[in-house]
Design a binder for these strands. Structure first.
Lengths: 343, 343
DNA sequence: AACCTTGCCGGCAACCTTGCCGGAACATAA
DNA sequence: TTATGTTCCGGCAAGGTTGCCGGCAAGGTT
């Protein structure tokens, strides 16, 4: 039975009850060598009885580390939720607690989050940068304090830190090549914001696929718009009103694929016969709509886990190279929206 | 220009540089009365120059509060993500940091999370209980320490704490009444796990609607299954193989609605003509599938905000009644899946 | 007999901040 | 003059923990 005290027991309480010094109790609890077996047993049994739990604050203050990781992400959509779950999984296992802050894709909010987490004295950061972020001063403060940082998913060359990400270029390539192999001739791209790395990489993959298959790149078929269903809807309208109208669209995210699909339907276009469609992320919704949308699957949970693992390695070995770059691989999930032949 | 020191400046540094005592610096920084204007200015300007930031750990240790809220949730699906965003919003504003832990609907994990958050010395908890949870011993530890707790969304009578939730009964009622008004006669329910409060409340609403419209309750039309697309799929199969087959289904969540829809389609049943369908949560996906699924909308973001607000009130006024119960209202979003008449 | 080892333990300081008390210097009132 | 009040400041302790050092006794080594 634990004694019913409103205040948790401390080392001091144990010392008093056993008439020994604080130091001895501390040593006994941490299995330090120079304590007699007898007193150690006494301390251990009493500490159990009092339900003693070391005070994390005091420990952190003393040892200058909090066993807490600050995680900054732009939002909590499907992809990032999965990644956070992965981070959580590994962090918990390793004895770390995670503080998740959403920037809501806002630059100002990202600065505020960084600030707050620094004040909270987290031991380091795992970051996926907001799409609005173009300046990186606020992250410099982290590295000034010499805290470990790992970036994941939305990485940026402006922040030199170990990173974990998808091979986005490969993803863009396989989506585009698939459309080409299905016989589509004029393939358009709905890309994300121009400064967003993942979007540009996927776009690169698209270009490579065209090149490999000797299709001339048409800049007019590349549209940048916000990572958003509504923007994609209007961007698709624009594409479909062109004279040299595309016969397939590759969208850089599934949200955008949904927007594109809605516009196509409204225009009375049939997928995949009139026009093909491939999205990115393989969110569950792609399999539920009609027609089901082909999409590039990314191993979100694994990316999260890898990021946390890399963080902990970096942590334990502070001098590790900042050039470590872990790259995970996408997989194309083919569904109706792009299956022209076997339809 | 901030001095470039690897270790953040402390009150001690300021005191040394100005040749005054720690106490005086502390007072000056906190606008205490008994400091001369002259020294106050000196302290303030130097503290700015050194980029002084009070050490949260020392403060927390001294004042016995961490300005951190522990949030325990079963997962990070659409609904809970929105709620967490609401909590975050209000907490940030009020100067609190949030630690989010997912139990993954696992009882053991929920215990572990509670344990960890208690060790982290959070100032209190905002909790939505896992569907697996039937014992509440682990939460008692929180209340033993006299920490404030607010429960939200998935509340339980076994935990006496202020709560924020949807009027689930009203939601169940409006969904069912809508189906009745559309002329459906045999309305089945796919309910969640039997010990889950929100599911039972929605079920109550269903029963009330039947009663109001003088329809006899048929227990065979009520099926309990896991909050899950696949289970719902098989449960629907069961419903559709009955002799007295239902002509409409109300599912307690949109995930389940999706599962039900898939099975119906496979059976060749047309919605809404052959069979009606209404879901719950109004996840975006319900508007995207074909036919679009009617659903009961809940104000997730607002529920999150309300929970955090209630927490902070409870915090500031520890003796507040544990009986406060904030209830938010649902709204039926009618789509094709249940629109028999105007179709 | 003088010395060194070994095993065990307590005291002190430090991490950083604040609350409380007392005290010095000066001004005002009786 | 003495008593009382004001203004400003420093010292000390506390919050809980650990690292470092020194100390004491028992036993072993030359």
């Amino acid at each position: 039975m634990a004694n019913h005290m409103d205040n948790p027991a401390t080392i001091k309480d144990i010392a008093k009850r056993l008439n020994i010094s604080l130091s001895t109790v501390s040593r006994a609890l941490r299995n330090a060598p120079d304590v007699s077996e007898e007193t150690r047993q006494a301390v251990l049994s009493l500490s159990q009885e009092l339900n003693y739990q070391p005070n994390r604050l005091a420990l952190s203050l003393r040892q200058n580390q909090t066993h807490t990781i600050g995680v900054i992400i732009p939002n909590l959509d499907y992809v990032l939720s999965q990644m956070v779950r992965g981070i959580d999984e590994v962090a918990l296992e390793a004895g770390y607690t995670v503080m998740v802050c959403q920037s809501n894709e806002s630059f100002g909010r990202e600065i505020l989050n960084t600030q707050r987490l620094l004040e909270s004295l987290v031991d380091g950061f795992i970051i996926s940068v907001s799409s609005e972020t173009k300046s990186f001063e606020h992250f410099k403060k982290i590295q000034d304090r010499n805290l470990p940082v790992v970036v994941f998913d939305r990485i940026t060359p402006h922040l030199s830190a170990p990173s974990v990400r998808l091979d986005n270029q490969a993803g863009g390539f396989m989506a585009t090549e698939h459309l080409i192999e299905q016989g589509y001739k004029k393939i358009a791209v709905l890309a994300g914001p121009e400064n967003l790395g993942i979007s540009n990489s996927r776009l690169e993959g698209y270009k490579h696929a065209l090149k490999k298959h000797k299709i001339k790149l048409d800049q007019d078929l590349i549209l940048h718009c916000d990572f958003n269903q509504d923007y994609a809807y209007y961007a698709t309208l624009e594409l479909l009103s062109m004279k040299k109208k595309p016969d397939a669209i590759f969208t850089i995210s599934d949200r955008m694929a949904i927007g594109a699909m809605q516009k196509k339907k409204k225009k009375g276009l049939q997928m995949p016969t009139d026009i093909g469609l491939v999205g990115f992320n393989n969110e569950p919704v792609t399999g539920l709509v009609t027609p089901a949308i082909s999409s590039v699957e990314m191993p979100c949970f694994e990316i999260g886990k890898a990021a946390a693992k890399l963080f902990i390695e970096t942590m334990h070995n502070k001098e590790s190279a900042t050039t470590i770059e872990k790259i995970l691989h996408p997989k194309l999930i083919v569904r109706e929206s792009s299956l022209k032949f076997s339809a």
